[in-house]
Amino acid sequence: MSLIDMGFHGNQFTWKRGKTESTFVAKRLDRILCCAQSRLRWQEASVRHLPFLASDHAPLYLQLTPEVKGDARRRPFRFEAAWLQHNEFQDLLTASWDRDIDTREALQRLEMTLRKWNREVFENVQRRKEDLLMEITEIQEKN
């Protein structure tokens, strides 16, 4: 079928089994293949082997276009559903909402409060998660 293996970045193995040195086996079983036409269309595409977390297979991440890092100050405001799980969020929302002003102005003030809270409190959770995933990846690459 003339398929092309797209290669990868990250851990060289995508499957592992066994806990002890005598029973441990690891292989690169999982791959992303494409045809020549697709490879030409997405020349910047890359494949990353993510860390083993809940399975004996590592998830594969296909990114078709390069990641673009923009100016965070210019990004539009986005509500994060994960905020709802944070134990401080409901109190922050209740304390921040001003019923005595125009709804549009109240929303703008709330946006500023949530941006600050996200940066100071919630983003630390995201940063910790990213740090832990990076640590897991480094440990798995050493083995």
Rank of each mutant, 00 (worst) to 15 (best):
P76L: 13
P76E: 11
P76K: 07
P76A: 07
P76I: 09
P76D: 06
P76F: 07
F77Y: 13
F77G: 04
F77P: 01
F77M: 05
F77E: 04
F77S: 08
F77I: 02
R78W: 03
R78T: 04
F79C: 04
F79Y: 10
F79V: 09
F79P: 00
F79K: 00
E80N: 06
E80Q: 06
E80L: 05
E80F: 03
E80C: 01
A81P: 00
A81M: 02
A81G: 04
A81I: 00
A81E: 02
A82M: 08
A82P: 00
A82Y: 01
A82L: 03
W83P: 00
W83Y: 11
W83T: 05
W83R: 00
L84A: 06
L84G: 09
L84M: 07
L84R: 04
L84E: 00
L84I: 00
Q85D: 10
Q85M: 09
Q85A: 14
H86R: 04
H86I: 02
H86Y: 10
H86E: 01
H86W: 02
H86A: 07
H86G: 00
H86Q: 07
H86F: 02
N87M: 08
N87Q: 15
N87T: 11
N87R: 12
E88D: 15
E88P: 02
E88G: 06
E88Q: 14
E88I: 01
E88H: 10
E88R: 11
F89C: 05
F89H: 00
F89I: 03
F89M: 04
Q90Y: 11
Q90R: 15
Q90K: 15
Q90C: 10
Q90T: 12
D91I: 03
D91V: 06
D91P: 01
D91T: 14
D91R: 14
D91S: 15
L92K: 05
L92R: 06
L92M: 12
L92I: 15
L92T: 11
L93Y: 05
L93V: 13
L93G: 05
L93C: 11
L93S: 11
L93F: 08
L93E: 02
L93K: 07
L93M: 15
T94W: 08
T94M: 14
T94C: 14
A95M: 12
A95R: 14
A95H: 14
A95F: 07
A95I: 10
S96G: 14
S96P: 01
S96L: 11
W97Q: 07
W97T: 11
W97M: 09
W97D: 12
W97Y: 13
W97I: 09
D98W: 10
D98K: 12
D98L: 08
D98F: 07
D98Y: 11
D98P: 05
R99P: 13
R99Q: 14
D100K: 13
D100M: 10
D100T: 14
I101W: 05
I101Y: 04
I101T: 12
I101H: 09
I101F: 04
D102G: 03
D102T: 07
D102P: 00
D102A: 11
T103E: 09
T103P: 06
T103K: 08
T103A: 13
T103V: 15
T103G: 01
R104P: 01
R104N: 11
R104L: 05
E105I: 07
E105V: 06
E105D: 09
E105A: 05
E105T: 12
